[in-house]
Design a protein around this nucleic acid. Structure first.
Lengths: 305, 305
DNA sequence: GGCTGCCCAAGGTCTGACCTAGGAGTGTGA
DNA sequence: TCACACTCCTAGGTCAGACCTTGGGCAGCC
């Protein structure tokens, strides 16, 4: 069986024209190199050197092999170099999970933070929705993520809360936000909710459903849209009200719904922002980096309230 | 230390998403593959797979490694393929030594013979002069050769005579070739001799010198030229006479010296055409091929006389 | 909750990669 | 021409590691 070690010995021997010289250069005893060459000759099925009194002389078959040996060793070196660079976060890809709305107020800054410290890397922020991200984590396709969880609990996952974000009621009608919104009023509201695809599992809705269960009603939305931006824009046009995280309010309301206002729910409701990864997993440097930077960003944004 | 074996296991695991699957595909037990992956991870200094309940999932570092691993294994395969093809005489170079005049009457045909049987190979017929070729052989740069030797004898070389070629006297003056030329007449002749560079060691001259030693004279040439063609042409113009192998007479006289004639020496003198290679050397298929074909050609040409 | 499938860990065998020591051949210099 | 220097090979011994089998733990599925 062919091996890189044999090729290394072959090249050294070829260049020195001598097994002893090659052995010295490689730091081995001469018989060791001799053995490798013999093994290589057996592997390729042809004599590579003529043993001629003083030293050895490559055959034409050796001439043929040499460029291929160099290419092979070069490719192996390159592989090692590339992987080490990736492991040191000099190149390669950093993949991190993040749910849709969190990405709205921390995503771009987080990516900027990473790129500043590690200019060579690619960054992938994956996941539109918390539960989707959660699933990727369970399957191991994702190492760690920042997600919004209504209740902090899991068995196979380690969930580390880093901040909480209040869910607030937004509306273009000043009367709707003149005082905190109770469960009763919420049940009657005409709402637009984002993340249509994942409606049933969306974290915000789970919170709302739990709130409304006390009144014996089911939460109903009048409009379903895919992204929060659209939802906020619809609120701005006065077509519906919505419930969104407080952080998103600061980020989107001035731009997309300048006339709208907001108020708390009563009782106040919160999404918990947490770092999640598989239990018993040792985290890679890349994951640790992302967790640290994401936490800093989220905490800085949410502790102002 | 990185090894091809590790890369093979890595790729199989990557593709199957499972150590067991990779082990089955490679024909190993699962713990063996597991061990290789662990060794590879240690070698590159990064985790390549997350062990996640059912199966394993490649990390982004593994994504980075994969194309390099494929390139490396591909290059190794290519190396093996190229060398095996060269060893089977499908590609690569065949190098064979041949002295100047022999090449004149067998060279082109010999090359044609080789190319007909092995269309993919390159052919190198090296050596202008017998002694030069002999030296290349001693140094191992050449595996085997057909050379002209005045006397068949050597210590470190195996010399196998395959034919002999008579040395004949050629002249444009019919009177000079009307009867066999004795040593006495030869000593007085005005001669043109080829292979000026190697004058002292040229095989033909050694024969002549030995012949003339009996008369107590030294051979003297009036003209020295590099190649036999020029010598024959000068003979054709009547500027000098010469002594050349009989085979060359048939080949060159009609074309380069149409008016010239030839006669034997008295006593007759011969160059021995022999296959030479280092003693105790096992010959490669390429060398055996060249020896066989060259012998056939030379024998076919010389046995007519 | 049992079953299956997958991984790791432990322990044993055997190949092969390495060493040292000694013998044979060749080229060089006295 | 002889001895020395240099190269290669062979022989025999050590040790790492590549492979195996067996058994245990954990996740996902019926």
């Amino acid at each position: 069986m062919l091996s890189l070690h044999q090729l290394r010995c072959f090249l050294a021997t070829f260049e020195h024209g001598s097994l002893t010289g090659a052995a010295d250069a490689l730091g081995y005893a001469q018989p060791s190199v001799s053995e490798q060459i013999r093994a290589l000759e057996k592997a390729v099925g042809a004599q590579l050197f003529r043993r001629v009194g003083r030293g050895v002389v490559p055959t034409t078959v050796a001439d043929e092999l040499r460029p291929h040996a160099e290419r092979t060793l070069g490719a192996a070196d390159e592989a090692l170099r590339a992987v080490r660079a990736a492991a040191r976060l000099e190149t390669g890809t950093i993949r991190f999970g993040m749910f849709g709305t969190a990405r709205l107020y921390a995503g771009a800054d987080l990516v900027a933070d990473v790129l500043e410290r590690h200019p060579g890397v690619r960054v992938e922020l994956v996941g539109q929705n918390s539960t989707e991200v959660f699933d990727e984590l369970r399957r191991g396709r994702l190492e760690a993520a920042m997600i919004a969880v209504p209740s902090v609990s899991s068995d196979a996952m380690t969930v580390t809360p880093v901040a909480r974000d209040e869910l607030v009621y937004v509306s273009a009608d000043p009367e709707h936000v003149s005082s905190p919104v109770t469960a009763h009023r919420l049940a009657q509201a005409s709402l637009v909710m984002a993340e249509a695809t994942w409606a049933a599992e969306d974290s915000t809705r789970i919170v709302l459903r739990r709130m409304l269960q006390e009144t014996g009603r089911n939460p109903r939305s009048r409009i379903e849209v895919e992204d929060v931006e659209t939802a906020v824009e619809l609120v701005g046009r006065g077509l519906a009200d919505s419930v969104i995280p407080r952080g998103v309010v600061d980020q989107l309301l001035p731009r997309l719904a300048p006339g709208a206002g907001w108020t708390s729910l009563r009782p106040r409701q919160y999404d918990t922002l947490a770092i999640v990864h598989r239990a018993n997993a040792t985290l890679s440097p890349a994951a640790r980096l992302m967790i640290e930077l994401a936490t800093q960003r989220i905490v800085a944004l949410t502790e102002r309230y």
